[in-house]
Amino acid sequence: MNLTISGHHLEVTQALREYVLNKLSRVIRHFDQVVDVNVLLTVEKQKEKDRRQRAEVTMHVKGREIFCEHAHEDLYAAIDELMDKLDRQVCRHKDRVQNHHHASAKRMDVSAG
């Protein structure tokens, strides 16, 4: 798995890097066919009173690209919410891949009675 963590208008510190890795390990625990992960942390300076911090992830898994983003006033909160969204999307993708091989309706055992 290739992991890239980058920042826009922000220096990615070791603490941020470890926090993202810790949260990302929870997502990867569900699904191990991850090829690439790109994490972009951004600080948008539109107004000083309305500083929004955004985190986004592009995850390339076998057969699909999964993209998620979330913005919040606190970067750590944005990362938390982002990983929750990503976890839901990865679980949904995993269910779709696994449920593809189900028994057809004509081969199902129907008990008469």
Rank of each mutant, 00 (worst) to 15 (best):
residue 58 T to P: 01
residue 32 D to N: 15
residue 100 H to W: 10
residue 80 D to K: 00
residue 47 K to E: 13
residue 23 K to A: 09
residue 5 I to L: 04
residue 29 R to T: 13
residue 81 E to Y: 10
residue 74 D to R: 04
residue 78 A to C: 04
residue 93 H to M: 06
residue 27 V to H: 10
residue 105 A to Y: 12
residue 92 R to L: 05
residue 15 A to E: 07
residue 98 Q to R: 10
residue 65 E to Q: 10
residue 6 S to M: 06
residue 36 D to K: 09
residue 105 A to E: 15
residue 95 D to I: 15
residue 66 I to D: 02
residue 15 A to Q: 14
residue 80 D to A: 00
residue 72 H to Y: 04
residue 39 V to F: 00
residue 91 C to N: 12
residue 14 Q to H: 04
residue 79 I to A: 11
residue 59 M to G: 05
residue 85 K to M: 07
residue 3 L to I: 02
residue 95 D to F: 09
residue 14 Q to L: 14
residue 110 V to P: 02
residue 73 E to S: 05
residue 100 H to N: 09
residue 67 F to P: 05
residue 104 S to C: 11
residue 43 V to E: 06
residue 74 D to N: 02
residue 50 D to Y: 06
residue 86 L to C: 12
residue 95 D to L: 11
residue 95 D to S: 12
residue 48 E to R: 01
residue 80 D to N: 00
residue 67 F to L: 07
residue 101 H to T: 03
residue 66 I to P: 02
residue 58 T to D: 11
residue 46 Q to R: 13
residue 69 E to S: 14
residue 27 V to F: 03
residue 86 L to S: 05
residue 12 V to K: 00
residue 43 V to S: 02
residue 59 M to I: 03
residue 34 V to P: 03
residue 94 K to R: 08
residue 70 H to L: 01
residue 39 V to C: 05
residue 10 L to P: 05
residue 4 T to G: 13
residue 2 N to P: 03
residue 55 A to N: 02
residue 48 E to Y: 10
residue 24 L to K: 04
residue 1 M to R: 12
residue 6 S to V: 09
residue 2 N to C: 02
residue 107 R to F: 14
residue 55 A to I: 00
residue 82 L to M: 06
residue 28 I to C: 10
residue 35 V to W: 12
residue 21 L to S: 10
residue 19 Y to M: 06
residue 77 A to C: 08
residue 40 L to E: 13
residue 88 R to E: 05
residue 81 E to V: 09
residue 90 V to K: 03
